[in-house]
Structures are given as C-alpha cells and as structure tokens.
Design a protein around this nucleic acid. Structure first.
Lengths: 212, 212, 212, 212
DNA sequence: CATGAATGAGTGTTCATTCAT
DNA sequence: AATGAATGAACACTCATTCAT
C-alpha cells in the first residue's frame, strides 16, 4: 500500500515535471522563432516543427498562438522588473545603484537572448493585449529612467534636461544596443560586460568632454 | 506622320504623367497604412480601398505588396541620404555641419511622417529584401555617425569612445525619439525644433555636467 | 460614345446578373447538402465541391458557412410567410381560406424541396441565430394555427380543444408529412395534391367519424 | 483450487457488476448531453467531464462516440417496443388497448426524458447506422399505427383514410408533442397525463365535431 | 483497469495574386 | 489601361481516437 502510494506520487510528480519541461520546451522554441522571424512571421506550424510536437500537443499546452507570445512577453517583463531596484531618492549618490541595476538587467537580457530579441523587435500594433503589456512595461522603464535623471539632477550629477525626452532617447539607445549585440553579437563573454559599461558610460557620462 | 507622332508623343507623355501621378497616389496611401498598421497589419485590400483603385490596377502599377513596401522604404532612404552631407574630415569645426545635417534629416522626417514611421517601426525580419535594404541604410547612417564621432574625437570635441557602440546607441536614440514624436507627437510646429535640438544636445553634449 | 456607354452598361448588367446567378448556384448547392446531411454534416469543402467553385469564391459571395445557412433559412421562412394569408376572424366560413393557405404552402414546399428539408430536419441547438429565426418562424406558424382553431371553434366548425396542444400536434404532423414526402416521395406530380388534401383532411376533419 | 475459483468468480462477478454500473453511468451522462446539445454539439470531452471519467476510460467502455449514441438510441427503441402491445385484430373494441399502449409509451418517455429528447431531436443524416436504426424503429411505429387505423376502420371507429399518410401525420404529432412537453414542459406531474390524453384525443377523435 | 498526454486529419477563414473581360 | 471575380495555399484552431505508463 505504502509502496503503491509512493509509486503513484512519484508517477504523478514525474508526469507533472515532464509536463512542465515540455511547456518550457515549446516556449523556448517559440521564443527563438518569434525572435528570429517576429510574431507574424512565425506560424503555429513553425513552432510545432521546431519543438517537434504535433499540432494537437501545442494546443494541449497553450490556448493559442497569442497566448504563447503573451506569456513569453510577460516572462521577459517580469524578469526585468524583478531585477530592477527602485533607487531611494533620499539615498546617497545613486551612481552605484544605477550601475548595479544596469548590470542585473544586462544579465537577464544576455541569459534570455531570444526572449529579449522577441520583445525588442516587436513594436506596437501586433495585438491589443501586446500593446497594453508593452505600454505598461515601457511606462515602468520610463519612470525608472526619469526618476534616475531627476535624482541625478538633484544630486548635481547630471545636467538638467527634459527628462521625458532624455528617457525616450535612453530607451531607444538601450533597445538598439541590446538588439545589435544579441542579433549580431559574437557572443564573446565580454560582449555582456562591454554593453554594460557602454550603457553606464553613455547613460551617465554622455559623449562630450567639455560643455559646448 | 509627323503630326501623328507628335500627337502620340503628347498622348504618351500625358499618359505617362497620369501613370506617375497614380503610382504616387497609391504609394502615399500605402505609406500611411504601413505606418499606422505595419506591414503585416496592412492588406492589399486596405491599400486599394484607401487609394480608391481596383485590385487589378494595384498590380498594374506594382508587382506585389512587397514591391510597394520596398519602394517606399527606398524612397525614405534616398531622401534621408540625399540630405545628409558628408563632413569633410579636414574641414573646420564640424559642429555646425552636424547640426545642419540633423536639421535637414529632421525636416525630411517631419515632412514624411507616414514614411518614417513605416520604416522605423518595421524591424528586420519582414522580408529578406527589406532586411538587406535596411542593412545598407543603417550601415550608411552608422558610417556617418562613426565618422562624426571619430572626427569629433580628433578635434577634441568628443570623448574617445567605442565608435561602433556609440553609433548604435545614437541610432537607437534617434529612432525612438522620432517614433515617439511622430506617433504621440502633438504636431506642434515646434515639435520639430525640440527634437532637432534634443538630438544635437544629447548627441553632442551627453548628459553629464562633469566627468565621473 | 453612346455605344461605349451601352456596352459598359451591358457589361455591368451582365456581370451583375452573372454574379446573382452564381450566388444562387452556391445557395442551391448548399441547400441540397444541408438538406441531405444537415448543418454539421456539411462542410464548406462539401459546398465548394458541389458548387464547383474554389474556397476563395465561396467567401467572395458569403461571409461564412453560417451566413449561407441563415440566408437559406430566411429565404424559406420568407417564402412561407409571404404566401400565408391571415384569415379575417369576422369573415365568412374560413374553411376555404384555410384550404387555400395550405395549398399555397404546399406549393412553396414542393418547389423548394431542398430548402424545406433543410429547415425541417434541423432542430434547435445548431446556432443561437438559427434558434432565434426558427423560434420566430414557429411562433408565427403556431399563431396562425391557434387562430384558425379558435376561429373554427367560434364558427362551430371544430371541437373546443387546448389550442396550444393542438397547434403543436398539427405542426408536428405537417413537418413529418412534408419531410416524409420530400425525402422518400416518389415525386409524383400528385404527391403534392395528396399531401395538400391529407393536411386539410386531418387538420380540419380529424380521424374519427363519430365522437367517442 | 475450488475456493480459489470461487474467489475469482466473486471478484469477476463484482468486477463485472462494477463495469456494468460504470457503463450505465457514462450512458446516462451522454444521454443528458446528447439530449440537451444534440449529437454534433456534444463532444467526447463533454461526456467524460460530465461522467467524471478519463478519456481513456471512455474508450475502455465504448468503441467510439458513435457507439454510445447508437447504444442509447437502441435502448430507447427497445424500451418503447417492449411496452407496446400488438393489438389483436380479431379482438374486441381496440380503443382501450390503444389507450393503454399510449399510456405505457408516455410513461417510458417521461421516465427517460433525456433519451427521448435525444432520439426525437436528431433526425436522419447523423450517421448511416443511426439512419438505419431510426428507419427500423419508425417502421415499427408506423406499422403499429397503420394497423390500429385499419383495425379502427374495420370496427367502424375511424374514418377510412390513407393509412400511410395518417400514420406519418400521427408520428409527427406525437414527436412534436413529446418534444414540446419535454423541452419546455414545466415538469408538472400532470404534464404526463395531459399529453396522454391529448394524444388519445387527437389520435382517435380528431378535431371536427361533425363529419364534413 | 485506468489514465491523460499525444496525435493528425479536418474545420472555417484569409489574403496575395492572376486573369478574362 | 482598368476592372473585380476567381483562385488556392496558408492560417489558427478542434476533436475523435490511440497508446505508453
């Protein structure tokens, strides 16, 4: 009896684990394809071929193509958000804080290359739900950046600038650098460090030696 | 015979002009739609409805949906390229040169809002030919920027930086600012000037008052 | 010029007529299949094969499989309703009136065999819109019948009965007789007359010679 | 050895009984669903959910969805047939005989509402085997009715009519009244009696007071 | 015996492209 | 040159059935 229970428990656990692994497998395959060919360029047929599963199996694990895309997008957003620490405006010089945030974000990005490319290359207009998710995410990022800029200005670290415009520029710069590195990157282990440093460098120091 | 030829010539010329006008009309309608809904979100049906032409007519002027997209992309690229003046590396302080280039590019962008949005929102991966075109274009832009950065460094105007990385960041910043302004922009006449100045500001001066 | 106009007019008219003929052709094919195999047993593939058109053409003429079914159902309902004349309760003996209604309905039914079978064999539960249409139709029929029964009772022609129950029984009898005749019927020209007479006979006279 | 056999026999018997109980359980769940949503509107998924069994188990007890439907239909048919007593043509006035048959059928119908609705709402065309079964059943019913009519005519109880047509009409009336009562019926205990009486009334007496 | 994960043929629908008029 | 009817490959999704555990 006990053995029986144990066996059943084992089997159920193993089944559950297997199921989770398969879900992951599909998500990974989908992320790669979405990253390479975009949402519209990737068909369910592509995904099931890449994941080596049948049509039916795909729908056994996910409600729809959209659902997969949204889940992947959510995964990425969650990972990034969970790794960014809001800087205490009253705290000491925030420079190091920011640098650490950047490093952590870069780590997430480089450990989830496909996911990142997928999110970064897909602009608005794919699906309303996607737009909403992206909107909230970029809103969050923008707030982080604007806060950092305000904070930096208060501490006399950065020039007084139109924070909204500056945040937009920074977002664009970050996206492009990540995309460039991830798509063309030679996957040097130091690509990661180079990007980290470049982001901190450009973000905090700008390009000019002396004011114009 | 001669008169006949003339008449035919006239007719042919007028027909040619009419044909050109119609092509333009279709391209404009397509640009607007591609900008608003993206490549995949725009169907040939949308285009012919917007251009008020028949299905057949569309294919009389263009080989395919792709061809329209590519031609529009080419148009945009040509316009931008034709307006950028390569800075003489031996010349005097290039700051003003650069500023003028920026202003001219901004002018093109704001005078062809649909076209710009279309190009900027569509990343790589739509079609191989599109990728190739975009690749060459960004290669050109990148070269311009890298040249400017090298030049600036030589003149002691900018810090010594990894020009490739810096160019990537700048490209991203520029794209994002344009997109943001064009999509959400309130179409103030001064939006154009604000963006111009912000680009020059961020591009040339960076954000930091004093070096870290 | 005039000839040109005429020709264009002709062409347009002919095109319009051709279009209408094709629509009809598809509807006829669909009605036959729906009648033979039911709504669920008939696929769009079946319809386009029977109508000898391509998948795309089907959707050129109809929005969906449902739309075809609903249009056919509506056609049948309209034909029947347009042919039934509401009996004036104050009028003279309504027997002849009723008999004429029956004959007209029978004519419609026998001239649109597939359509009738399609409607009669499909019960409720196919689609909400279908249910609603059928509900309204049977409501109409029921009202007609109940009115006739009330009328007949007032004139002393029929026994006093629970009109609702009697109407239900009559509806069932009518449906079954039509279905039987249309599905198995040997298409004798007199099948039509036999059914007409039987309906009048059973509806008006009942089965018993003398009351039990 | 003998004890062993007995035990095995017991176990086998118990297992057999359990198996039978489970079969019944599934059939009941299926009948309810088939009645409510029809054959096409009911998926195997619906059935296993309602029966609270697994997919595999379903196919352990039945060969296919069709097999369940057919078995249910057969069940209904058997019940009805087993309850109808063939009237002796040489016997005395058959009125009471008929009335008793009607009452027994009504009892079966009201005690197996789901089953009845299932059979009545599904016309021909679902599956060839279904058609065949239904065909044989209605053949039997038809024979009963025609016999009764012939008998009635011989005894001078009913008018001389085309018995085939009359039987068809009666079948339709019966079906419709049952369906109406079972689907919309307020489940009054007397609904049963009302229907019984109405059937006898309409079937035997018809609607007209005096002969035409 | 029981399970539920896996399958793939089939569904209704879309849309870029062709072609007879 | 202009039209729009016609096409069919491709799409996302469903579901009855099988089978390893």
């Amino acid at each position: 009896m006990q053995a029986d229970d144990d066996m059943r428990g084992d089997r159920s656990e193993r089944a559950q684990a297997q199921r989770e692994r398969r879900r992951m497998h599909i998500l990974l395959a989908a992320a790669k394809l979405f990253g390479q060919r975009g949402y519209h360029g990737t068909s369910v047929a592509d995904v099931i071929e890449a994941a080596e599963i049948s049509r039916g199996t795909f729908y056994l694990y996910f409600d729809s193509k959209d659902a997969v895309f949204l889940e992947l997008m959510e995964q990425f957003i969650q990972r990034i958000m969970s790794v960014v620490e809001v800087v205490d405006p009253e705290g000491a010089t925030p420079t190091e804080h920011i640098a650490e945030n950047v490093r952590r974000v870069v780590d997430v990005v480089f450990e989830h290359r496909d996911l990142t490319v997928m999110v970064l290359r897909e602009g608005f207009g794919v699906r309303p739900e996607v737009d909403e998710k992206l909107g909230r995410f970029y809103g969050f990022v923008r707030e982080m950046l604007e806060g950092a800029l305000r904070n930096g200005a208060r501490h006399g670290l950065t020039r007084k600038v139109d924070e909204a415009l500056a945040a937009t520029a920074l977002i664009g710069a970050i996206k492009e650098m990540f995309l460039h590195e991830l798509v063309l990157g030679h996957s040097h282990e130091d690509g990661r460090r180079a990007v980290s440093e470049a982001l901190i460098d450009f973000g905090l120091r700008g390009l000019l030696i002396k004011s114009g």
